[in-house]
Amino acid sequence: MNNRASGGITTVLPAEDLAALRENLNDQRLFRREQVRRLTEPQASRARGGAARRTAARAEVDAKLAAYARMVLTDVEAALRRMDEGSYGICHLCRCSVGLERLRIVPQARYCGRCRQAEEAGP
């Protein structure tokens, strides 16, 4: 459900749903921060069983995983900011509500299902 407030659109989600979504986002934020830390720490502190050298392939995989984790972390933190601003759950394209079921699956979602499908379909 959407409400217009001071010229903008704000979302009205039940308090218990919003609290559960916030908890999920906070858990994801902690997980992604730890993941980035582990993937980017110096190799010497990560070495196990005397395997001090990583292969180039392993270094590339770690770099890609860290980049993905940073991207998700950015999305999660943006969703938490939208919660604080009162615009969480509003599609960035059509300005309609992002469905609660979609938010439960992807709590950092910026787009409703229809706009997401249109975006993926392309021109």
Rank of each mutant, 00 (worst) to 15 (best):
A66M: 12
L21A: 02
Q28N: 06
L18N: 04
L18K: 05
T11H: 06
R102I: 05
I90A: 11
S97Y: 05
L25S: 08
N24S: 15
V12W: 02
N2G: 12
N2M: 04
R70S: 14
A44M: 01
E34Q: 06
A47M: 00
E120P: 05
N3K: 08
R82M: 09
P42K: 02
S97Q: 12
R58K: 11
E34R: 15
C96F: 13
A59L: 15
L93A: 12
A19D: 10
T74C: 12
A52Y: 03
E77P: 00
A109V: 08
N26M: 08
A66K: 10
L103F: 00
A67E: 15
A63W: 07
R22V: 01
R58W: 15
I9D: 12
A66C: 12
R58F: 13
L25K: 06
M1C: 06
A66R: 14
R54S: 09
A57T: 07
N24D: 07
T40N: 08
A79Y: 06
V76S: 08
E23Q: 12
V106P: 02
A78D: 05
L39S: 01
A20M: 01
L30F: 10
T55P: 09
G122R: 04
D84S: 13
S6P: 09
V98P: 07
R37W: 06
A52L: 00
A121G: 03
A20S: 09
P123H: 04
E120H: 05
E77V: 03
P123A: 03
A47S: 02
R32I: 08
G86A: 05
P107L: 05
A57G: 06
R29H: 09
Q108S: 08
E101T: 04
F31M: 10
E120S: 03
G7E: 06
P107K: 01
A78N: 01
I90C: 13
L73N: 14
E23L: 13
E60S: 12
A15T: 06
Y68Q: 14
R53K: 15
Q43G: 14
L65A: 15
G113T: 15
D84I: 13
V72A: 13
M83E: 05
N24W: 11
E23F: 11
E34W: 06
G113Y: 09
L30N: 07
E16M: 02
A63S: 10
Y88D: 06
R104W: 01
E23N: 11
R104P: 02
I9V: 09
R48C: 01
A20E: 08
I9P: 07
V61K: 09
R37T: 15
L13S: 04
E101W: 00
L93S: 11
R22S: 09
Q35V: 09
